[in-house]
């Protein structure tokens, strides 16, 4: 006798870059991340728009991310569980925030109905994880199996981000010592990478052109040496940005010349990343497609 498959919901947080509107279309639930701006709390995409965020950030406001409150997490889960049997919860990378750790602790009270995925994704790669989870749930996989799948798949993604300025990075401090060492009066554009765990320094460029070349070479290297070849059927390619969409579009065109045939998704970087790296950043990411 075949067991009736369970109804599995996919829940992530707003670090995935998935907007509330988009979430409705995708059938995914998105927990808004709270921001403290000059000690006032805002919720990403609920009470805080991208425009308002950058305006405050560039105005020199003190912007701090914080974890979603346990209450807000549990309330969302409870609400979702009235409709679904299980939840796959995909929070932002545990290397960048403690919210994954908290969620795992909270999930202990849900009798295995909430599976918290610790796959160290952020932004466009976290978004891809949510999409993958949705796909797997559609195939009838249960929450524990999806969690297992995504965690095994966690290193099959790569992000490179070129910053326009070192200012926010220095101000923020959520960065490894290697990256913090780049303190200089020269106008450098650091290229950071998110490889699983942490935001780390990858290289330094002196011009945007150099930085883009560094990122293209790095992502090509990852595709060829880690993900089994630069093949559009095999890999998702994504461009992300902070504030400047036009620059991102132009970069996507440049990428398309390098990687013909790829579908390139352009998405804003989540504000939790943006507040550490500032406006004008440009990122390229890739994830291995699931079979």
């Amino acid at each position: 006798m075949e067991k009736l498959s369970k109804k599995v919901a996919v829940v992530t947080d707003s670090n995935s870059g998935i907007t509330q509107n988009e979430a409705k279309e995708l059938g995914i639930r998105v927990l808004p991340m709270p921001f403290m701006i000059n000690e006032e709390t805002f919720f990403e995409d609920i009470t805080l728009t991208q425009e308002a965020f950058y305006e405050r950030l560039e105005g020199g406001a003190d912007v701090v991310t914080s974890q979603p409150s346990p209450e807000s997490v549990m309330n969302l889960w409870k609400e979702v569980l009235t409709e679904y049997d299980e939840i796959v919860y995909i929070p932002m990378s545990s290397g960048l925030s403690g919210s994954c750790q908290s969620a795992m602790m909270l999930s202990e009270d849900f009798d295995g109905k909430v599976q918290v995925v610790n796959n160290q994704r952020i932004s466009v790669t976290q978004r891809q994880s949510a999409m993958d989870a949705k796909l797997l749930a559609g195939r009838g996989m249960d929450a524990a199996a999806i969690k297992d799948f995504l965690e095994k798949d966690k290193f099959n993604s790569s992000i490179y981000i070129m910053l326009d300025t070192l200012y926010y990075l220095k101000k923020g401090g959520r960065i490894t010592p290697a990256a913090a060492a780049i303190g200089t009066i020269l106008k450098l554009k650091p290229v950071l990478q998110i490889q699983g765990e942490k935001l780390d320094a990858f290289a330094k460029a002196r011009t945007a052109g150099q930085g883009k070349t560094i990122m293209i070479n790095a992502i090509r290297n990852d595709m060829e040496n880690r993900f089994g070849g630069a093949d559009a059927d095999n890999i998702w390619l994504e461009v992300a940005y902070t504030k400047n969409l036009d620059v991102a579009k132009q970069f996507a065109e440049e990428l398309l010349k390098e990687f013909p045939g790829f579908d390139i998704v352009i998405n804003p970087l989540s504000l939790s990343v943006a507040c550490h790296i500032g406006p004008g950043s440009l990122a390229v990411a890739c994830c291995k497609k699931i079979r």
Binding site: A178, A181, L186, L188, D200, A201, F202, A203, K204, R206
Partner: peptide, 11 residues
């Protein structure tokens, strides 16, 4: 010299 050290990557 400046270019050389900029291209140094600690890892």
């Amino acid at each position: 010299g400046i270019t050389a050290i900029i291209n140094y990557v600690p890892d």
